[in-house]
Design a protein around this nucleic acid. Structure first.
Lengths: 138, 138
DNA sequence: AGCTTTTTGGTACTTTAGTATGAGCGCCTT
DNA sequence: AAGGCGCTCATACTAAAGTACCAAAAAGCT
C-alpha cells in the first residue's frame, strides 16, 4: 500500500513537470508541442502496462492460493500434509516412506487419516478434494 | 492479426487528430495545452492497460492448453482419454465402469494401456505425467 | 511434571489396482 | 475378403492400497 501511494505521488509530480516543460518549450520555441505530447503518451502508455501487470499478477495469485488456515481447520497435521504433497506427485506408499525416512506402515496410517479428513475414499479423490479445498496447488 | 493492425491504425489516426486539435486549440486559444496533454495521457494510459490485458490473457491461455496432437502422438485413443479424465476426477475403476456403461475388466484394460502410454506405474503418477504433457488441465 | 497431540510402527485383514493372456466383435482400409 | 485397430470382456494372478485396532515414543502445552 505504501508503495502504491509512493508510485502515484511520483506520477503526479512527473505529470506536473511535463506540464511545465511543455509550457517552457512553447515559450522558448525550442521544443515542439508534438514532442511533448508524444512523451506524455509514451510515459502513460508504459504506466498503463505496468499498473495493469501488477493488478493482474495479484489477481492470479489470489485466484489460486493454498490456504494454511483451511489445512488447520481440517485437522491436517504437518506430517500428514507432507504425505499429501507426495501423493499428489504420484508417489506410492513405499516411495513416500523412503522419501520421508519412515516405514510404509506409518505412511499408511497417515494416508488413512488424510482420507477421513479430506472425506475421500481413494488417494486420487483426496487429491481432487484437496485442490477444491484450496489446500493443494491446482 | 487483422484486428491488431486495425487497432493500431486507429491509434495512429487518433494520435494525429490529437496533434491537430492541440495545434488548433493553441492558435484559437480556447483550449489549454494542459487539457490536450491530459487527454493524451488518459487515452494512452487506457490503451496501455488494454493491450497489456490482451497480451497477458493470451499468455495465460497458452500456458495451459490441452494439446490434442500430443494425445494422438502418444497413441491414446478416444475411449482411453475418457478413462483418463475419470481417473483425474478421482474415480475408482468400478465407478468409471458404471459411468461409461462397461465392465470393470474393460476399464482395467484401458487403465493398463494408459499407464504404458503415459509411462507411469500408478494412476496417480499417470495424472501427474498427463498434466506435464499438457493433455490434462492443470 | 502431567496431559494431549503427533508421529511412529506393527499385525491382520479386505479391497482396489494393475498385469498377463486370450478372445470375440465391429469398423475401416487396402 | 483379409488384416489392422479399437473396444469389449473374462480369468487368474500379483501388488498395492486401505481399514481396524493397538501401542509406544516424541513433541508441545500448561
Amino acid at each position: 500500500m505504501k508503495k502504491t501511494v509512493f508510485v502515484f505521488s511520483a506520477l503526479i509530480i512527473a505529470l506536473l513537470i511535463l506540464f511545465q516543460l511543455s509550457k517552457y518549450s512553447y515559450i522558448s520555441g525550442d521544443l515542439s508541442i508534438e514532442v511533448g505530447i508524444a512523451v506524455v503518451a509514451v510515459v502513460f502508455f508504459i504506466i498503463g502496462i505496468y499498473i495493469n501487470k501488477r493488478t493482474l499478477n495479484r489477481e492470479r495469485q489470489v485466484s489460486n492460493p493454498i490456504d494454511p488456515e483451511k489445512i488447520e481447520k481440517l485437522g491436517i497435521s504437518k506430517r500428514e500434509y507432507e504425505v499429501l504433497l507426495c501423493i499428489s506427485k504420484g508417489l506410492s506408499n513405499k516411495e513416500i516412506a523412503e522419501q520421508l525416512f519412515v516405514s510404509e506402515s506409518t505412511i499408511k496410517t497417515h494416508v488413512s487419516n488424510l482420507l477421513v479428513k479430506l472425506n475421500a475414499k481413494r488417494r486420487t479423490q483426496a487429491i481432487q478434494n484437496a485442490k477444491n479445498l484450496k489446500i493443494l496447488a491446482v
